[in-house]
């Protein structure tokens, strides 16, 4: 259990921020985080390595975030006003880039977040999301294009 606790502590922030990028709401992100790690603690499967665990929790977080919106619980209980969660930043640039990403479609948000925040390579993202590397490449490229349009070309995307 101690080993599992170390894993939870290590990936807790990563999963929270990923879930937040997907759900756009702090409460919902926390719900996703709980669900992901409860599943991890319950999982009997043997993980081959820590990289395997990382990829698994990322995939579960993305899936949980998506299924949360379609769950009958949220349809019934969460009014739209509650889903809007305004976050303020100490600089305009941070606010601009954060909200520009937030406005993207979920599939672009996920790859943009993993590539630019988690510094994951295209191969790593494709393994984590279990999609073809070429799909990740095209989503990344399309996501960047949309961001350039939103941010009016004021940022480089290295």
């Amino acid at each position: 259990m101690e080993e599992k606790r170390q894993i939870v502590e290590k990936y807790f922030n990563m999963i929270y921020r990923l879930a937040l990028s997907q759900t756009k709401n702090r409460e919902m992100a926390e719900d996703v985080v709980q669900e992901v790690f409860l599943r991890y603690l319950k999982a009997d499967r043997g993980f081959e390595s820590e990289e395997h665990i990382k990829a698994w929790v990322i995939r579960v977080a993305i899936n949980c975030s998506h299924s949360l919106f379609s769950s009958s619980w949220y349809k019934k209980t969460a009014p739209m006003s509650e889903l809007k969660d305004e976050i303020t930043f100490d600089s305009e640039e941070k606010s601009d880039v954060y909200y520009a990403v937030k406005e993207l479609a979920p599939k672009y948000r996920a790859v943009i977040h993993l590539f630019y925040y988690e510094d994951m390579s295209i191969d790593e993202i494709s393994k984590a999301l279990k999609v073809n590397p070429s799909t990740v490449k095209s989503q990344l490229s399309r996501g960047r294009k949309l961001l350039r349009e939103k941010l009016k070309g004021g940022y480089d995307f290295v």
């Binding site: 922030n13 929270y16 709980q34 930043f89 961001l147 995307f157």
Partner: peptide, 21 residues
Amino acid sequence: MFRKYYKEANDSLEPNRALID
């Protein structure tokens, strides 16, 4: 620049660590 600001923005979003317990 995008990466830098996006990282800083996300770094400032602190989760509630009490959630781990």
